[in-house]
Amino acid sequence: MNRYLFLKEMSNRCSLLSSFDVGPCDSTQSSIADQLKAVKDRDTRRDYMNGSVLQCRTCNTVLGDSLGICGEIQSLQLIVCLKVSDDVSVSKQLEMSLDGHLAFSTYHLLRCAGCKSSVGLALHSTPEHLSALRNLFLLRKELINCYMLRTGKYVQASKMSFIHRLMDKDIKELKQDLEAQLKQVKILEGMMDKLCTRSVD
């Protein structure tokens, strides 16, 4: 059960409890409500200040940001993105490459809405070795500038690395955090079940 569904279920249970003889001064009910609020209000924001904004090198139109990047293809100098901004339009016409790294692939050009220039491509059909890149947004590094949020400076995308390296330490920390949250959810579920049982009796 994901956290949203759990919180919705807890909210429904709290509504159910209010129909039984549980007074507003009941300390158990208020402590559960406080704990549910703490889970709901927990700060899950990312550190956005370490991010960057991808902009068209010609006209500075925002094309995406670092949260949408999932890697790069170094041999082709392409940034691989899961999502881009609404200012990137996908051409309806299919193009075909007959040579090079993208040989025998068909693709749609990605265009900047500001200056109408081509900024990348989205692969439509590919040989098997490129199949993982189908339907992703591939932005050409040489046509992109990155605005760094922390420093407020522009850096050419061609001078940056977009390879994601998941460190073992980060994975362990994430696992510990998820286990702690799961433990808290189980405790809250147990408390709610006990409270519901008492109220029915």
Score class of each variant (00 low, 15 high):
residue 103 A to W: 15
residue 91 S to G: 01
residue 131 S to Y: 10
residue 17 L to P: 02
residue 91 S to Y: 07
residue 174 L to N: 15
residue 132 A to V: 10
residue 138 L to E: 03
residue 5 L to H: 02
residue 78 L to G: 03
residue 128 E to R: 06
residue 27 S to Y: 13
residue 7 L to D: 08
residue 122 A to L: 11
residue 160 M to Q: 13
residue 70 C to A: 06
residue 40 K to R: 03
residue 126 T to P: 02
residue 117 S to V: 07
residue 107 Y to C: 01
residue 36 L to H: 00
residue 64 G to P: 00
residue 154 Y to L: 14
residue 51 G to T: 02
residue 158 S to Y: 13
residue 88 V to M: 05
residue 112 C to D: 12
residue 177 D to E: 05
residue 167 M to H: 02
residue 36 L to Y: 04
residue 16 L to P: 06
residue 14 C to D: 04
residue 142 E to P: 06
residue 43 D to G: 06
residue 88 V to T: 09
residue 142 E to C: 06
residue 183 K to G: 09
residue 196 C to V: 15
residue 27 S to R: 12
residue 27 S to A: 05
residue 198 R to P: 00
residue 45 R to F: 04
residue 37 K to R: 07
residue 123 L to Y: 01
residue 181 Q to R: 14
residue 44 T to P: 00
residue 48 Y to S: 11
residue 110 L to M: 01
residue 104 F to C: 15
residue 115 C to F: 11
residue 107 Y to L: 02
residue 65 D to T: 15
residue 74 Q to Y: 08
residue 182 L to W: 00
residue 152 G to H: 03
residue 5 L to C: 01
residue 156 Q to T: 09
residue 46 R to C: 13
residue 133 L to M: 08
residue 147 Y to V: 00
residue 71 G to H: 11
residue 161 S to Q: 03
residue 4 Y to K: 05
residue 75 S to Y: 05
residue 38 A to V: 02
residue 164 H to D: 08
residue 144 I to C: 09
residue 190 G to I: 03
residue 117 S to D: 05
